[in-house]
Each structure stands twice: as C-alpha cells, then as structure tokens.
C-alpha cells in the first residue's frame, strides 16, 4: 500500500524509541479505524459481489456481475464525470481562495480577525437542508439577487433558471458546495500558517523585505508540504459531496447534478415512486468500491507525477 519512498529523516529520534510503547500508542486509533472505517469498508467490498436489496435474507453471490453491469451503466459514468468536475474545478477554487483569505486573516494587525474567521466558518455549520432553500432564492429566476445583478450588468437578457437548466445547475451546486465548505479549508491553511515562526517575519522585516517578498520567500515555502495534504483533503471532500447536493437538487434536473455519492445513495436506498422496484445495495456498493479505487489510482498517478517533476526540478537546479 505504502508508496512513500525511502527517505532518511534528518533528525533521528529512534534511539530512544521503545517499539512496545509505539505500538501501544497506536492501538486506540487503530482499533477505532479498524472497527468504524476498515471493517465497514471490507463489508462494502463483500456487498459489491452480491445481489442484495439490503434487508431480506435473499442474498445471492454474483461475483463480478455488478462490476460488469457498471461498466455499461451510462448514469454511473455520467455521475463519475461530474464528481471529477467537482474535484478538478472545486479543489483549486477552494484551496487557492481559502489560502488567500487565510493569509489575510492571519495578519496579527487585523484585530477583527477572529470575528472574520468565524464568519467565513459559519456556512460550514449551517444546516444543509436550509441552505438548499436559501439557494433556490439566490439562484432563482424569480427576483433572485444573482439574476438581478447579471441582468443589470447586461450579462444576460432575461433571468436564467440556474438550478433548472441542466447546463448551469452543476455549477450552481459546485459554487454553493465550495462556499459552504470554504471554512474547513481555511482552518487547514490557518493551522498551517501557524507553523511559520513569527520570528522569521520579524527578522525579514528588519531586513526591509516587502509584503510580497515575505509571502514568496517565507510563507509559501513553509506552506508547501501542507499544500499537498490540504489539496488531498479538499479533493477528497469534493469527491464525497453529498448532503448539500441532495438537499439542493437531489441530483436533478435530469441527473445534471447527480454526483457519485448521490448516485450511490439513490441506487442503494431510494425506492422509485412510479415503477416500484426494490433497492440494489449490492450494485450500489460496487459503484462505490469501483469509484473509490479509481479515485485512489488517479491520486497515486498524480502523486507520482508530482514527485517526478519536483525531482527533475531539483536535478535541474543542481
């Protein structure tokens, strides 16, 4: 599993390490992870090989049949694509935006900073169902403020039904999702910024460095290792976007906002109101497992690529 390349740590504490203590210290977290993350994960792999509605005792082993069916399921691939849009567009948007806000709010001179941070954080905890309602007004064609701005700026002639148009709905949802979770990424960045010793800034200021130079030569280099983690975490959140999408559009109109988690949920649970029919937990699990694996593979490829480029750059410098 591990792809970390062997790399010698410059600081070596291992001479005092007592392996027994190390293992003992890992135990609680490992138990929690094993019980509540890995066991359910393994079970969902098991479910992915059966034909099962999730409740009856009628469970039929079907091997890879669910996966085979998935390969030709257009709705699944469309949802797959939408989740990739969420990751590829939503991640940079949020990571860069949150970094800028975090840098501004990290300034000690800004006395109101705690209040501003709290405000940027507030959407994170606002109930998704209620956000869904507010957004129907904000994006709505009936007196919605967004449309009023766009019309008054002559960007559009007539109000656009952003949530009712299958071309724009996904962007409206993506923007809302970015807005709502912006505060989490901001916290990550703020935490990372704490690791830049204030003394560096003071020293640099004594040397007469400007704000931009400070940012470029002190802040960003220190943040770089965190950037990878923050990008991964944000990408992961975008990958698993669910509650807000379900509350805002439930995947509609005509599947245009059906991201992968919504697809999985609707396959696993929701009964069809017109045609009847039982849910397909096995098939939904297969979709989840396949998508998760694909995402992992993509992330690994990306990670290797980044590593290669940075190594090449280093070699060029040397």
């Amino acid at each position: 599993m591990s792809v970390t390349q062997p790399r010698r740590s410059s600081r070596d504490w291992s001479r005092f390490a007592t392996p027994a203590w190390c293992y003992a210290f890992m135990l609680p977290a490992l138990v929690l992870a094993a019980l509540f993350t890995f066991y359910p994960m393994v079970m969902s792999w098991v479910y992915s090989t059966v034909d099962w509605n999730g409740f009856s005792s009628d469970i039929e082993f079907v091997g890879l049949a669910n996966y085979r069916e998935l390969m030709s399921d257009g709705l699944f691939w469309d949802a797959f694509g939408r989740s990739l849009i969420f990751v590829l567009v939503g991640t940079p948007l949020r990571v860069i935006g949150a970094l800028l806000v975090a840098i501004v709010l990290n300034q000690q001179a800004l006395k109101l900073s705690p209040a501003f941070r709290t405000m940027f954080f507030m959407p994170v905890v606002t109930t998704a169902a209620i956000v869904g309602i507010v957004m129907t007004f904000i994006f709505g064609p009936y007196g919605g403020p967004l449309n009023e701005v766009l019309v008054s700026l002559d960007v559009v002639d007539a109000p656009v039904d952003f949530l009712g148009d299958s071309d724009t709905a996904i962007w409206a949802v993506l923007l809302t999702h970015t807005w709502k979770n912006f505060g989490i990424t901001m916290i990550y960045w703020l935490a990372a910024l704490q690791t830049v010793p204030q003394s560096y800034y003071e020293a640099a200021k004594v040397d007469g460095a400007g704000a931009f130079a400070l940012l470029r030569h002190i802040t960003l280099p220190v943040l770089l290792p965190f950037a990878v983690v923050i990008i991964v975490l944000t990408a992961n959140e975008n990958l698993h976007a669910f509650a807000l999408v379900q509350a805002m559009t439930a995947g509609g109109p005509f599947f245009s906002t059906q991201v992968i988690e919504v697809y999985i949920y609707q396959t696993a649970f929701a009964a069809d109101a017109t045609g009847g029919g039982v849910p397909r937990l096995g098939y939904a699990s297969a979709a989840g497992c396949f998508f998760g694996t694909a995402a992992l593979v993509l992330a690994l490829i990306q990670g290797i690529a980044v590593r290669q480029t940075s190594r090449m750059r280093k070699q060029l410098k040397a």
Partner: peptide, 9 residues
Amino acid sequence: AIFLPEGYT
C-alpha cells in the same frame, strides 16, 4: 482510507 469509498457503511 481517505479514498476508499465509505458509501455504504
């Protein structure tokens, strides 16, 4: 664990 699906847990 970050990437593996939690879908149906």
